[in-house]
């Protein structure tokens, strides 16, 4: 409700402050946590903070999509991979690697920080400098967004979806492993042992075949 927010700047500021603290704390957690699952959960926290900021900017559709796509699908997939591969132990971040690998990110991070500070120094904290404000007009934000997506920006929209489909097909092709002979129980013992026992498990959530893959991977997790 834009009128409500315009009338009351204090709730506006409070919402922003809380969401910003959540975002930054989550982002720090992603970097600093040793356990990958904890890091992923902190990422979820950041994404939620950003969703709150979207709502505050009256971009409600974006907020919903943010939660559905990022926390609902992408981070769940991260966690899925982490669980299946069993990398749920603490990582030795500084055990090996080059000095440059540590310095370059620091440098890049500092650069981004300086850039943000430079860009934002005129409009501090409050929602004065909206970049993604509500689409103007009598219609709601969602309706306006839908219209512009399916009229003005139809081609980029469709091209993006085609790109995604191509990416999915490419991933399926790349992830198909060399076929094994079925029914390993009927083979001679030596042959079974010779067969590579542990291919990297392909964490796939989709597809009937992927489902069977998942079931197979589960047994590996058990035997680990």
């Amino acid at each position: 409700m834009p009128t409500l927010l315009a009338a009351a700047t204090l709730p506006d500021a409070i919402t922003f402050a809380v969401a910003a603290v959540i975002c930054v704390a989550g982002a720090l957690g992603v970097v600093l946590m040793r356990n990958p699952v904890h890091a992923a959960l902190n990422l979820v926290m950041t994404l939620f903070g950003i969703a709150v900021l979207f709502v505050e900017e009256d971009a409600q559709f974006l907020a919903a999509v943010q939660v559905i796509v990022y926390t609902g699908a992408i981070v769940v997939l991260f966690l899925f991979v982490i669980m299946l591969l069993g990398v749920d132990r603490q990582e030795q971040v500084f055990a090996d690697g080059f000095v440059a690998q540590r310095l370059v990110p620091l440098l890049l991070g500092a650069l981004v920080l300086v850039e943000v500070l430079l860009l934002a120094h005129q409009h501090w904290v409050t929602g004065a400098a909206k970049v993604s404000g509500a689409a103007r007009g009598t219609r709601t934000n969602v309706v306006a967004l839908g219209r512009s997506l399916f009229t003005t920006y139809l081609l980029p929209f469709e091209v993006t979806s085609a790109l995604l489909v191509v990416a999915v097909i490419g991933a399926v092709v790349l992830a198909r492993r060399p076929h094994r002979v079925p029914e390993p129980g009927e083979l001679p013992d030596g042959a079974v042992r010779a067969a590579p026992p542990a291919e990297p498990p392909v964490p796939s959530v989709g597809g009937g075949e992927g489902a069977a893959d998942g079931a197979d991977d589960e047994t590996k997790v058990v035997s680990r």
Partner: peptide
Amino acid sequence: GSSFEPVPAAPGLRAAATPGKV
């Protein structure tokens, strides 16, 4: 497959991607 092809090494033998377990 296994009745007339006891040797598992036949590279042309293609099963579906399913591991045949479930």
